[in-house]
Simulated assay, not measured.
Amino acid sequence: MPQATSHAKLWVGIACLVLGQWTLSLLDAAGKLLAQSGYHVIMIAWMRYSLNTLLMAAVLAPHFRRRHGRSILHTRRPQLQVFRAALLLLSTVVFFSVLKIAPLSEGTAMNFCAPLFVLAISPWLLKEKSYASRWVAVAVGFSGMLIVMRPGGSISPLGVMLGLLSALVFAAVVVLTRKTNQTDHPMVTLFYGGLVGMVISSAIVPFFWTPHTPSTTEWLILASTGVTSTVGHLLVNSAYKHAEASLLAPYAYLQIISATTMGWLVFGQLPDALTAVGIGIICAGGIGIAFVEHRRVQSDAPGPATP
């Protein structure tokens, strides 16, 4: 029975992760639509973070207080939380800038290099052990990224530079998330990410406001960014409550499918054959190291006690 329960929780975790990734692809598609329509990425980020924070304050914060007996703003590392949240806002702005000029599938694939960058820097910043398998995965992922970003491909030089910057900033966010989650509840980190993003973007959005009044459709798309970001991140967070990160890591790369599907349905864009090969190599590097890391965790885990 315990094994059946474990398998059931794993499938619930996988379902939450896949649904969350598809929901976040809706967010990315909305951001790309708005950016291509002339809305500044700062305005898009402001709407996304403001609605996201208001929804979390209305739903998540009261639930957290009832369950844990303290405010969701309670943190042991306030400066680190604020710094991480500011980097998260920067990551969002840069990524939306990438999507403005790059196809959805290619933009998403470049961002998937972030976990590989984390593997490369974790021995120094997180004091984690360095393994040859991790460096192989980084090399494989980087070779795939070079194919996606090749001269003459579908991404302009500016898109290439922004894609690299987006992956590097997001890698920094991942590292800081690991640090904050060592002392604070993940929901606290999630809420600070939205709150600080809302405060900073609210302070600067008047300087980037789009001069014309949004239509009803555009307002709905803007509003959808807050809803999809909230639902998507809550689903992803729930996934990691039901299953280990090492087990879920390979399934995160299924977002490439949702990004490609949304790119085709909304923008009529599909990667060419060579770009698809590059995307596949990036995913292979990430999925391969995820399986290796899971096997390593399983082998390092203490066995059952002997009578």
Rank of each mutant, 00 (worst) to 15 (best):
Ala259Ile: 05
Thr275Lys: 03
Leu168Arg: 02
Gly152Thr: 11
Val231Lys: 05
Thr177Pro: 01
Ile14Trp: 01
Gly31Trp: 10
Thr216Cys: 10
Thr177Asp: 04
Asn237Pro: 09
Gly152Gln: 08
Gly163Glu: 01
Ala305Arg: 14
Asp184Gln: 10
Leu90Lys: 05
Pro271Asn: 07
Ser201Val: 08
Lys179Ile: 11
Gly194Leu: 06
Gly197Phe: 08
Ile72Cys: 13
Gly285Pro: 06
Ala29Asn: 14
Thr108Arg: 12
Phe170Pro: 05
Ala85Lys: 05
Asp272Trp: 09
Ala58Arg: 03
Val41Ala: 07
Leu55His: 07
Phe207Trp: 09
Met47Gly: 11
Leu222Asp: 03
Gly226Thr: 09
Val98Ala: 08
Phe96Pro: 09
Lys129Glu: 00
Tyr253Pro: 00
Leu80Ser: 09
Val175Ile: 04
Ser71Asn: 06
Leu146Ala: 06
Ser37Trp: 13
Ile289Met: 07
Val199Phe: 10
Val93Met: 13
Leu24Arg: 00
Gly107Asn: 05
Val236Asp: 06
Arg295Thr: 06
Arg77Gly: 08
Ser258His: 02
Gln79Pro: 09
Thr261Asn: 08
Thr228Pro: 06
Met47Asn: 09
Ala8Val: 09
Leu60Arg: 01
Pro271Ala: 08
Thr228Gln: 06
Phe64Ser: 02
Leu270Ser: 15
Pro115Tyr: 02
Val174Asn: 03
Tyr240Glu: 11
Gly153Glu: 01
Ile72Val: 08
Thr5Leu: 13
Ser71Lys: 01
Pro157Asp: 12
Ser50Tyr: 07
Leu89Phe: 14
Ala109Asn: 00
Val41Thr: 12
Asp184Trp: 11
Ser50Asp: 07
Thr217Gln: 13
Pro206Gly: 07
Ser105Cys: 12
Gln3Trp: 08
Gly152Lys: 02
Leu165Phe: 10
Ser229Arg: 05
Arg150His: 10
Val136Cys: 11
Leu126Val: 00
Ala172Gly: 15
Gly38Arg: 03
Met149Ser: 12
Ser6Asp: 11
Lys127Asp: 02
Asp300Gly: 11
Tyr251Gly: 08
Arg77His: 11
Leu90Arg: 07
Val175Cys: 00
Leu248Ile: 04
Gln36Gly: 12
Asn52Ser: 14
Leu27Ser: 04
Ala120Leu: 14
Lys129Tyr: 00
Val140Asn: 05
Ile221Gly: 08
Gly288Ile: 02
Ala167Met: 05
Ser97Lys: 07
Ser299His: 07
Thr92Phe: 12
Ser71Arg: 02
Pro103Arg: 01
Leu248Gln: 02
Pro62Lys: 03
Ser97Cys: 07
Ile72Trp: 12
Arg178Gly: 01
Gly38Asp: 03
Ser258Gly: 12
His212Gly: 13
Tyr251Met: 13
Leu254Met: 07
Phe117Gln: 00
Thr275Gln: 01
Ile155Phe: 08
Leu190Ser: 10
Phe112Lys: 00
Gln3His: 14
Ala276Thr: 15
Thr210Val: 11
Gln36Asn: 13
Val18Phe: 06
Met187Tyr: 12
Leu99Glu: 01
Thr5Glu: 13
Val174Met: 12
Val93Asn: 05
